[in-house]
Every structure is written in structure tokens, then in C-alpha cells.
């Protein structure tokens, strides 16, 4: 402690040390200044965009049911009193419906199709709805899906997120007679790293 006490006395510093300190102080100021300049050159966090007019919310458009081959329609071309008699009993399907597979729970034609008016569907309360409104029939059993579909969470929505939006009905995606999805063909896989070809040309060169 004895020797150091002298160093604390300011009068004993030689002038050369004062110069060093002032140089260091100057350097600090210059470096700080440079940093300030550098910080000023950082881009703004975001661009100052001009305000823009709001897009109207638009409306939900329900796409009509997918098209059915003309030769099936209208149903009452074939379905008359005779077929009505056969109707209620489950049996092997024939003629135009030879290929129709019915694998939808324990349902039979008459659970959904009206016997008297085959051009319409029949709800549980015996009221008739056209094929375009088939979703009203589906949601009698699949009621939990209705609010999700209305909210746009179940099913496909196209068009705009703000503006007109197109909703599809159940039967667009689910074949009502065999509802589960069938696997489809996928698109090609991306290339593996080892399959990537190196090309060494400079820009403009081939």
C-alpha cells in the first residue's frame, strides 16, 4: 500500500500520461461517433406504407352440387310405380345402378331418396330438398360438422380470405354412397441431395 499511495496523487503524473489519456478519450469519442453513424444506417423496422382502402368482406358463395351425367337425369325417367314397389327391400342393384356401391353405414336408398318424388331427397321430417341442398340431409346425422363447415374449418374454401369465398358442399369431396376418401396419385418427390447435378458455368455462360 505504501508505494501506491503516491500514484494516487494527481500532481505527480508526468505530462506524457495526460496526453495518452486524452488520445484514448478522443479515440473513444470517435469510435462512439462511428457506431452512431452505423446505427443510423440500419434500415427502418418497416416501410412507411401509405394507407390503403379496405377490401369489402364479401359473401360466402355455395357452389352447386357437382354435375351428374345427363343420362341419369331426371330420375323419374326410370323410377315409377314399379320401382317404388321394389324400393324398400335391400337387394342387388341392377340396370343403371349396377356399378353403384352403397357402403354408408346400414343405409339403403330410401333413407335419403324420396320414393314418390325420386328427383328430390327426403329429410327425416319427411320434407323434400333438391339435390343442390344435399348438405341439409347429410348434417342430420353429421351435425357436428355443420358449424365447422360454416366456419370454413371443415371442407375446402377457395377464392378470397377477404372478399367472396366459395364453399363446396359435402358431396363435392365425399361420394355420398361410399363416403371415405380413396387414396389418390401423388406428385413426384423432391430430388435427394445426391441427385443434384453441379453446374459450374458463370452467369451468361452455358
Amino acid at each position: 500500500m505504501t508505494g501506491d499511495d503516491h500514484d494516487l496523487d494527481g500532481d505527480r503524473h508526468p505530462p506524457i500520461q495526460l496526453t495518452i489519456w486524452s488520445v484514448i478519450a478522443l479515440a473513444v469519442v470517435v469510435i462512439a461517433g462511428l457506431f452512431t453513424v452505423r446505427l443510423e444506417h440500419q434500415p427502418e423496422t418497416t416501410r412507411d406504407y401509405p394507407p390503403r382502402p379496405q377490401i369489402a368482406d364479401g359473401e360466402a358463395i355455395l357452389l352447386p352440387a357437382p354435375e351428374v351425367a345427363d343420362d341419369y337425369l331426371p330420375c323419374n325417367d326410370c323410377h315409377d310405380e314399379v320401382t317404388r314397389e321394389q324400393g324398400p327391400v335391400p337387394r342387388e342393384l341392377e340396370f343403371e345402378h349396377e356399378d353403384t356401391k352403397l357402403e354408408h353405414g346400414n343405409l339403403w336408398c330410401r333413407h335419403c331418396h324420396d320414393a314418390v318424388d325420386p328427383n328430390n331427397l327426403r329429410l327425416a321430417d319427411a320434407s323434400l330438398v333438391p339435390f343442390e341442398d344435399s348438405w341439409k340431409l347429410c348434417t342430420q346425422c353429421h351435425g357436428k360438422k355443420l358449424p365447422e363447415w360454416r366456419a370454413g374449418v371443415h371442407g375446402k374454401v377457395t377464392g378470397n380470405w377477404r372478399g367472396d369465398r366459395e364453399y363446396v358442399t359435402c358431396v363435392f369431396c365425399h361420394e355420398p354412397h361410399t363416403p371415405p376418401f380413396v387414396p389418390i396419385e401423388g406428385e413426384p418427390r423432391p430430388r435427394r441431395p445426391e441427385e443434384i447435378v453441379l453446374r459450374t458455368s458463370l452467369p451468361g455462360e452455358q
Binding site: V157, T158, W161, G163
Partner: peptide
């Protein structure tokens, strides 16, 4: 512009 993304 209010549209949905292409992947959607």
C-alpha cells in the same frame, strides 16, 4: 389483394 394463397 384479399385472395387465398395458392397452396390453400
Amino acid at each position: 389483394k384479399g385472395r387465398l394463397p395458392a397452396c390453400h
